[in-house]
Design a protein around this nucleic acid. Structure first.
Length: 396
DNA sequence: CTCAGTAGTGAGCACTGCGT
DNA sequence: ACGCAGTGCTCACTACTGAG
């Protein structure tokens, strides 16, 4: 159903679609000064700069403000990326085709449409390639965009832009909150700043092994079905890296009583700190209930003299010191012996709790902002669905 | 015949599961 | 605790195709 006054246009009529520089054009250089930056799919989400020499051939592959890039292959094929201002003048790679909007379409409207469900639905059927999904320029140019007249496009773009602005503002608040937490950790966990009630009380050097019991984990035999899908939480490092808070409440896989008994996995109580010590080193979480882990962990079951939140923040702050002692050729691993030996200066329980309370507040602030961002994103998505399909019309 | 664009494959990397 | 096997992902090489 096309809303009244709208038309369906192929992307190639609204924008110029070109693949970027293939390997035959690329000469990589080590020194950024010797060339220009090449933007690849990996640069959409994180910075992974690579530089190529700026030969005359490369002039065709230079990004301009307002360009949109799309992942042309791989698992992320189809996701789009707006070229930020500071990417202007960079080159783009063969696997990251460029979409350059023409003047007949509102750029912001188009960007939003390309990010909407309307496009992802179409894309799946357009992928070619057996081993890996591949989007050729013809397929990209064939994306069907339903467009209202320009004034309506602009109005929709304006509305969505205000949501983007709100998201950006909250992201800035989140960044500030994170900075503040870092500063608090720096001053409170090193004893640089003390609370008046505790001033003068010395901190003691404590080995991790002395804070409680260190328990490792294991994997039940995966060929025995009766070991799995029980009601005991069993964590792998992936469960930890996916967390958005310091607490772990559930795990992707669950094991049974017999799986627990038949393996070296051991159940640890609520309040235990689970620390990844294999491949991923230093990621950690606090258990909110009985849980066990695979062998990639050292789990710290604390004695009464230690506050789990405090120890969590302390280890998080001194993560680098844990990583430094990890060794291994295939991948890094921190042994139980080395883990237990690491020592840190710690105050008495009362001061631990006081410090933890301040850091918990800072963490709550961060979580609050992160939640607002998620909420704003969800709301924007719902709004996009309505506005970009013409289900909700704007008044001009 | 040449070359730009296209399609497919595999190298290489990072990570985790699991046997020893 | 150690290291191999397997998986998933991105990047880049290479061969093919068709236009000029």
């Amino acid at each position: 159903m096309v809303p009244e006054g709208w038309s369906i246009t192929k992307l190639s009529d609204l924008a110029d679609v070109k693949r970027g520089a293939g390997s035959q054009y690329l000469t990589y250089v080590d020194d950024p000064d010797d060339g220009i930056r090449l933007i690849r799919i990996g640069d959409f989400l994180g910075d992974n700069p690579k530089y190529v020499s700026h030969t005359p051939d490369m002039n065709r592959f230079i990004l301009k403000k307002g360009d949109i890039l799309i992942a042309g292959t791989g698992a992320t094929a189809g996701i789009t990326f707006e070229v930020p201002e500071h990417f202007e003048g960079f080159a783009f790679s063969y696997n990251a085709p460029r979409i350059r909007p023409k003047s007949s379409v509102d750029k912001v409207f188009l960007v939003n449409f390309l990010k909407s469900n309307e496009i992802t639905k179409q894309q799946r059927s357009l992928f070619t390639g057996n081993a890996q999904p591949f989007l050729d320029t013809k397929a990209i140019g064939g994306f069907r965009i339903s467009t209202p007249p320009l004034p309506e496009q602009r109005k929709i773009a304006d509305i969505l832009a205000t949501w983007d602005a709100a998201i950006e503002k909250t992201e800035a608040l989140l960044a500030t909150a994170k900075d503040q937490k870092r500063a608090l950790m720096q001053s409170l966990l090193t004893g640089k700043r003390r609370f008046p009630d505790f001033e003068g009380q010395p901190w003691k050097e404590v080995r991790l092994g002395e804070t409680g019991t260190t328990v490792s984990g294991g994997t039940p035999d995966s060929t025995v079905a009766s070991n799995w899908d029980g009601d005991i939480h069993w964590a792998t490092p992936t469960d930890i890296t996916k967390l958005t808070s310091r607490f772990i409440r559930k795990t992707a896989r669950m094991i049974t009583e017999s799986g627990l008994k038949g393996s070296s996995a051991k159940l640890v109580p609520s309040g235990t700190i689970l620390i990844c010590t294999r491949a991923t080193i230093g990621e950690m979480a606090i258990a909110t209930g009985p849980i066990c882990t695979n062998q990639g962990f050292k789990n710290l079951v604390l004695s009464d003299a230690f506050d789990s939140d405090f120890i969590f923040y302390l280890l998080q702050f001194f993560k680098k010191d844990l990583i430094r002692y990890a060794c291994g050729s295939t991948f890094l691993e921190l042994s139980k012996k080395d883990f237990d030996k690491r020592s840190f200066l710690m105050p008495e329980l009362g001061e631990q709790r006081r410090i933890a309370a301040v850091l918990n507040d800072a963490e709550d602030q961060i979580a609050e902002h992160a939640q607002s961002i998620t909420k704003l994103r969800t709301e924007k998505k719902a709004l996009m669905q309505q506005l970009l399909t013409g289900k909700r019309r704007v008044s001009l």
